[in-house]
Amino acid sequence: MQNDRPLTKLVSANGSLADSKQDCLTQLVQEQWIQPNLCLSIVSHSHLLREALARLLQTDWNHRLKHSSKEGDTSDTADSISTAEKLTQHLVLLDYGIGRDLMIPSIQQWRSQHPGCYVVVVELKQESDLILDCIEAGAHGYVLQGASSLEIAQTIERVCRGEAHCSPIITAKLFERLAQTKMAQKNAQPLREKPSLTQREIEVLHYVAQGCSDREIAAKLVIEVRTVKHHVHNLLRKLHVKYRWQAAQLAIENGWLAKI
C-alpha cells in the first residue's frame, strides 16, 4: 500500500492550516459567528460533517455558530463547556459518529453542567434502544442518519420551542421504559455494594469514567487493546450493566474511584 499522506494537515473551518491537533482545536474553539439569537456547537470527529452542518445551518438558519469542537479531547470539551457558561441559549449538535460510549456520557455531561443547554444528536442509527438511551441521558432531540439540512434545522427549531418529536414506536417504548424505571426505583437499594474488582479492573474503570476509549486506556496502562476489552467485559459482567457509561456512572455515584 502506498501511504503518501499528502493531505494530513488538519484544516480548520475557516480554511487555515494548523500544524498540530491542539492548535487546530484551539482555532476551532475560538471561531465565532456573531448572530444574536442562538449559540450552536457541533461535536464530531469528522471535519467534513462539521463543515457541512456549519455551512448549511448558517445558510438556512442564521444561527449563531459559536464553534465546532472535536469530542474525545477532554480539554477541548472542557473549553467548550466553559465558554457555554457565558451564554444564555446554547444548542449542542452531537454526531453519533463519536461513538455510543462517548456520546451518552457527553450528553449527560452537557445536561448536568448546563441544564439550560439543548442537546440534539445527529446521524443517529434507527435503533430503538439507542434512541431511548439518548433520550434517557438527556437529549432534547435527535435526527436519524440520512436526514437533510432542512430536517436538522426543523428539529433544532422544534427543540428551541420546547417541543419534542419521536415516532409512535419510540414513544410507546419510552412509556414502557419509564414504567420499568419507576418499578426499578421502587426496588432499588440506596447504595450498591462494591463488587470484588481486581486492581487492574479498578484502573480500567477509572479511565472508562474519564471517557477514554479502549485504545487510550491501553496506551495509558501500557497493555494490549484486547486486554482492555477483556477487562471492560469483566467489569460490565461484575457490575451487571450493559454499557460502559453505566459502569462509570455506578462507580462515580458510589465513590468507588475516590482513592485512585
Binding site: 500500500m1 501511504n3 503518501d4 499522506r5 493531505l7 488538519l10 484544516v11 473551518a13 467534513l48
Partner: peptide, 20 residues
Amino acid sequence: LHCHQLQITSSLSLIESIRQ
C-alpha cells in the same frame, strides 16, 4: 488494488484529493 491513504479535513481538501 493500488491504494493511497488520505485525510479529508474539509470540502476543499476533498476536491484537491479528487483531482489528485
